[in-house]
Design a protein around this nucleic acid. Sequence first.
DNA 1: ATTACCAAGATTGGATCCAATATTCAATAT
DNA 2: ATATTGAATATTGGATCCAATCTTGGTAAT
Lengths: 226, 226
Amino acid sequence: MKLRAVDIGKTTSAASIIFDSLRQAIIEGELNDGDPLRQDEIATLFNTSRIPVREALTRLEQQGLVESRRYRGSVVAGLSAEEAAEIFDFRSLLEGEVIAASVPKMTSASLLEARQHCQDFMDSDDPLEWGELNRRLHYALYRDSGLTYHLKVIDNALDRVERYLRAQLLMTDGLDLANREHLAILSACESGDAALAAERTRQHIQGAKHTLIDFLEKNKGQQSRI
Amino acid sequence: MKLRAVDIGKTTSAASIIFDSLRQAIIEGELNDGDPLRQDEIATLFNTSRIPVREALTRLEQQGLVESRRYRGSVVAGLSAEEAAEIFDFRSLLEGEVIAASVPKMTSASLLEARQHCQDFMDSDDPLEWGELNRRLHYALYRDSGLTYHLKVIDNALDRVERYLRAQLLMTDGLDLANREHLAILSACESGDAALAAERTRQHIQGAKHTLIDFLEKNKGQQSRI
DNA sequence: ATTACCAAGATTGGATCCAATATTCAATAT
DNA sequence: ATATTGAATATTGGATCCAATCTTGGTAAT
């Protein structure tokens, strides 16, 4: 027997489905800071009991996307300007390191894929796509480093700030600048200059941080909808 | 009435108590890589139902301390030499950055506390205490940075490798070396030299990494009990 | 009017029960 | 003897129910 079995249905638990949906809704900004997440409401929404909802919520809490208080329920976790700034610094440090480790190992396939994602990013005009496209691009640039732990942590950090990143891209020239920077990072990778790629990656993220902080300063207290 | 009620018992959920206990048992090496964690067994151990056990397990899974497979249960997550090495690199990068940010802001109280923990560490001869003492020392050195996100991530990374760290300290001169390095880091902090403190911190962690890798190479396949 | 208090409803945490899947092991066929 | 099958058991995932706590709204005392 040479065939390999492939499960058709029931491959994922209800908890995982709910987790993925909630995570997406949060990082896309469909749910806002402080929005309550009632177990019962979500359960009826997914036609399940509250049990898998609770599992999804504890996972999200561990990832810092929701905050729960005993007997008081869960809300979408907010992010102060200071926290956001810290996470951008964090990403800057880590992603610089990871891309530097990646460049010497990068295959032409990865470079090709990165270029494609770069193009996709420029072609897209749907803000909700940007997050996913950005992730794919970065993943193509980073994965050959083989630093799986680093990548997981970076991914988690990105989850926390993706909403704010979108706000930054929506600003005047935000998207153009991001595209130019992506191309610059890519070309540094293609020429095999690890240090340059790292530096440009750090600058890219630091730039995003500062534009975002300016944005938050201007709209201070206005509880801006993104 | 001016007093604020403070619950004596019941302040923490059953899930949290179970989570803390399991986490401690794992990072102390009381439970070993691959050991199965049966929901029923743990539930009877804590005189609860399986519900809070499941919450504890999903939290631990999110932190990478256990691995769960659908319908197959959870086991204590193992760590290959490569993964361990990567996490040490990760810590080296982050902790260097954090201590550098901390030094210029460090209060004399923190320095004093750090020196005390350093002393405690030297006085202790109980391997099971080392983890906690090490954490306290590092926390005293890092906290004034105010980089709470970084600190949380570092703490999590430490959870993953603490067992292996103990193995490294138990080696000949391992403890003496660690103590000397701690003192060197502390003195760099006291003299306000952020760059030096960062460099020594990175070296401290890199050193630990290499001793550990040598150790794992030597005992390859012997499934060593720590 | 303001504050303290108490009861009713809402919501979460945990227990118990049932369903779905995996594992074990004896029985059978080769 | 070895491999295969299938029933019995073990274990997890999810549903339902109960208990503990919070929240809200109204009432009474000052």
